[in-house]
């Protein structure tokens, strides 16, 4: 009886408290909270201006005055990274959210209904896959106009086929199971089956893919910034900073190193969090 009580308490707890019962998830969750906190508060606390050049102080090495050194215009890299954080997180998270939502819905419809609908959706995805992402973004931005949100849209469209494929194959596997038939026999609507019975059971591959995609979204966005699409200099964007830094790799490696480190850190934290979240969401992995 005591065992049952503890199981019951476990189930009734909120998602947040369940996250904190998992070591990996809780540590990475705290890191993500810190990142968000820094992104929101950080820009008000920095000493230097991120965009004003100081030509007397170009490519200075890291020191007590400039923690991460300065870039080729003499701007403090630490300041620029802090100021660039909201932008990078925003691009990464929002474009993955949009891309994943569209991709997951298309993938589930494709896998569940099969037949013509399936072929049609998947052939469209193949076309998107085959289409070079940069070209797609160029076309989109030249049609819609150059702005941050069009950049995000381009990145998210780029992510859709990957989600659609993964979700479709997982959906096909789930549809073979008898509980889907059981729901059909009970008279459940297609929408109920898709969102209540298929979706929760394919969450783990989606989460893993999403956390990985946040990384690639940040990188894609920075590539596009480098080409002059979306984010414009002197706005401190991590990818753009990395690209600028690569010209000074031999004289001043820190210019590229710290933005790269920042990207890697964010990507890693999201990835570990995704891993932990998958364990938390799976009822079978509970002790």
């Amino acid at each position: 009886m005591t065992k049952d009580k503890s199981v019951m308490n476990m189930e009734n707890r909120s998602l947040i408290s369940r996250i904190f019962s998992n070591k990996t998830a809780s540590i990475s969750f705290i890191f993500i909270l810190c990142l968000v906190f820094i992104a929101v508060i950080g820009p008000y606390l920095t000493v230097y201006d991120p965009n004003v050049p100081d030509t007397s102080n170009r490519l200075a090495s890291p020191s007590a005055k400039h923690f991460f050194g300065t870039d080729h215009h003499g701007r403090d890299i630490f300041t620029r990274i802090i100021h660039g954080m909201p932008l990078s997180l925003y691009i990464g998270v929002i474009s993955v959210l949009i891309g994943a939502t569209i991709g997951v819905v298309l993938g589930m419809i494709s896998g569940y209904y099969g037949g013509f609908i399936d072929s049609f959706i998947m052939r469209c995805m193949d076309v998107l896959f085959a289409f070079p992402g940069i070209l797609l973004a160029l076309a989109l931005v030249s049609v819609l106009g150059n702005s941050l949100h069009h950049l995000i849209l381009a990145v998210s469209i780029f992510l859709v086929p990957m989600f659609a494929r993964i979700v479709r194959s997982s959906t096909l596997a789930i549809c073979q199971l008898e509980y889907i038939d059981a729901m059909k026999v009970l008279g459940a609507s297609d929408i109920r089956i898709i969102f209540k019975h298929i979706f929760p059971n394919i969450v783990s591959p989606i989460i893993v893919q999403a956390t990985l995609s946040i990384a690639s979204a940040i990188l894609t966005a920075s590539t596009l910034s480098f080409l002059g699409l979306g984010v414009q200099p002197p706005t401190p964007e991590w990818g753009a900073m990395l690209n600028e830094g690569k010209d000074y790799m031999y004289q001043a490696p820190h210019v590229a190193f710290f933005p790269g480190l920042a990207i890697m850190f964010v990507v890693l934290v999201f990835h570990i969090f995704g891993d932990g979240l998958r364990d938390v969401l799976d009822p079978k992995s509970k002790k």
Binding site: L177, E178, Y179, D181, A182, V185, L186, G187, H197, P200, N201, P283, K284
Partner: peptide, 20 residues
Amino acid sequence: RKRKEMQMIFQHPHSSLNPR
């Protein structure tokens, strides 16, 4: 609506219930 009148029990108890 008619499905209410007739039900089915399946072969594999492990996969006939939604694990979530």
